[in-house]
Design a protein around this nucleic acid. Structure first.
Lengths: 346, 346
DNA sequence: GTTAGCACTCTATTCTTGAGAGTGCTAATG
DNA sequence: CATTAGCACTCTCAAGAATAGAGTGCTAAC
């Protein structure tokens, strides 16, 4: 990597420019750096260094007589090796905790609240992806008959997540029979991860192995129908209108393309979960997210762990020019917070 | 009302202007009307009539040398007495039906799908308010123990709506006891509207009357806690980004104020339900909606009926300059459609 | 009552101009 | 030899001026 070619001055200048640009949203001139950062160098020298950095691809020029702006590559270096951890203040931590205090500890509310907290404290968009169900462990299953052909299956997960599902049932199934099936299913399947249950439900051999002498046609049918649910992660988004106060989104068409994407929940879900690393925080800068219409946005995301191996994702979407150290701390702290919440609530 | 003062020519001119303005989004000149509508009048005469209409408050002038634009009052007259029913085409009706075809008939999906359909066909914002729970009839109740202090209450409504709720329970309640309580509650409360159940649950006298010799401390507590749920209507919104293609929202600040409102789900819920007439369609023009930030928007809404007396609301939010006849037909047809769906699904 | 004609008003566009910001380069400096 | 002062050059941005065009309001004629 050419990164090695950077001497410490270049690093310092790049950092100063990123800092300054993030504050002002305006191209940074050599003068500005001389004034604001006491680097002991003249403007001319800085100009030379800046020209070097530009040639290396870390800065650009909107036009000849304008200051410099970091490129995505420049941000990459900044995020990877330049920026320093910025601890959240006590007030900020308290703000996050308070956000959860009022919630009823109910699964959906935690998700919703998290997206609100993230957006409120970051002043960007807060996004939360509910954990993927197929890793979830089934705690209990309740079958409620609706009419002669349908029942409601309520799946209570170990995480506290609840999934309701209308399911077709064999026509001549009495309520007592349904109740009996319900009991057997709980006995045999509770405690298993959904993924495994799904495999069982679709494989006659495994089905036989699990249910043994209890196995009957209705049981097989009910099991199959109940656990045939498609993978669906819920997406909670909040703070979209924060983008309006960003100067770089002053023109309608820029914000339009962004909002068109935000309305596609599935796309946002993909965005947050694609190439997700198992744990820890990750920063996608600008077009790295690979999503058309979001080239001007960066994403700071982190997975969170709900008891068991289930993973969900939270993230903040903001302009490429965002205060990375702060946002990273926020996302880090909040994801830890959720994991803790789930830990203690069970 | 001064409405009576309008002779048929004034009506015709007002209608022409509304029509024309809705198509072009540009102030309408006397020339334009002469060219596009064969009224057998000269531009000069039209100018006179337009001046009259302006004095009456139905038109305005952006500036001296511009054409006329309808005022809210002008739209009011148009909507109330001028516009003619516009039947949906067969294709449009089919489009709406197809939108529901894929859905699993599950309550939440119908709601969600409706907002999508409304926005897709109207090219504006589609909004759906789930029916108010307190009018809903409880079909069945299921209590699932979570831990020693909490249970999950699943309320299945006659409409197919399902409400999950984490509820505190008395500490030393055995699973068997909970099951027994569950059975008794279903026996005594199923079939009653939630509103009534809530009254019962909070009044010792009524409680005694309903449960008779079954009444015990745990039953009273569980009943109270389960039905103490706040009134919460879900809001489903889709198509917000359609506003970007409206020429009158070309400036960022106008669209910003709108989006800030749209993010407040409670406010949208109020907006759609305030002064709602029991049945039938209603049009709120411009600032009539009384919502700050939405002065440039009109709302076409209609309640829909889910078996029983529960009422929900659907609506379309668009710019004041919207194709009222078409949108009214869409909302009318769709609300009928939902009512039918619920009727047959049970 | 209707209409033709015309003066008047206001907007929107284009072009010009000048100021200001910032660079890149060159030559001088320690 | 790295650093810096100085200066010419480039480009943007804001303000002003000029022009074209659209549309009205009024008056006088039909």
């Amino acid at each position: 990597m050419t990164t090695l070619a950077l001497d410490s001055r270049k690093y310092a200048v790049l950092e100063a420019i990123v800092n300054c640009y993030n504050r002002t949203a305006e191209p940074v001139s050599s003068q500005k750096i001389v004034r604001d950062y006491d680097m002991g160098l003249s403007a001319a020298t800085l100009r030379n260094t800046m020209a070097d950095l530009e040639e290396l691809g870390y800065l650009t020029h909107p036009h000849t007589s304008a200051g410099r702006v970091p490129t995505e590559q420049g941000y990459r270096v900044y995020v990877d090796s330049l920026m320093t951890d910025q601890k959240l203040s006590r007030r900020e931590k308290q703000f996050i905790r308070d956000g959860y205090a009022s919630s009823r500890r109910d699964f959906e509310e935690i998700m919703e609240q998290t997206s609100k907290i993230l957006s409120a404290i970051s002043h960007h968009i807060g996004v939360v992806l509910s954990p993927e169900l197929h890793e979830s462990i089934l705690r209990r299953l309740e079958l409620i008959s609706i009419d002669s052909e349908h029942m409601l299956a309520v799946l209570l997960m170990a995480s506290g997540a609840v999934k309701n599902q209308v399911v077709s049932i064999p026509k001549d199934l009495s309520d007592e029979e349904l109740y009996r099936i319900n009991r057997i299913l709980n006995e045999k399947l509770a405690g298993l991860p959904l993924k495994q249950i799904r495999q069982i439900s679709q494989d006659p051999v495994k089905l036989k192995a699990v249910f043994d002498q209890h196995l009957s046609d209705p049981i097989a049918t009910v099991t199959r129908n109940t656990f045939a649910l498609e993978q669906e992660t819920h997406v909670y988004i909040d703070g979209t209108s924060n983008f309006f106060s960003q100067p770089e989104f002053g023109e309608v068409q820029k914000i339009e393309s962004l909002f068109r994407v935000l309305e596609q929940k599935e796309q946002i879900a993909d965005l947050l979960s694609s190439q997700q690393e198992p744990l820890g925080i990750q920063v996608l800068i600008g077009s790295e997210n690979g999503c058309e219409g979001m080239e001007m946005c960066s994403i700071v995301r982190s997975s969170y762990r709900v008891r068991g191996n289930q993973l969900g994702t939270i993230g903040v979407i903001g302009p490429t020019r965002m205060a990375y150290p702060r946002i990273v701390s926020i996302v880090k702290f909040t994801s830890q917070m959720i994991s803790d919440l789930f830990e203690e609530s069970l």
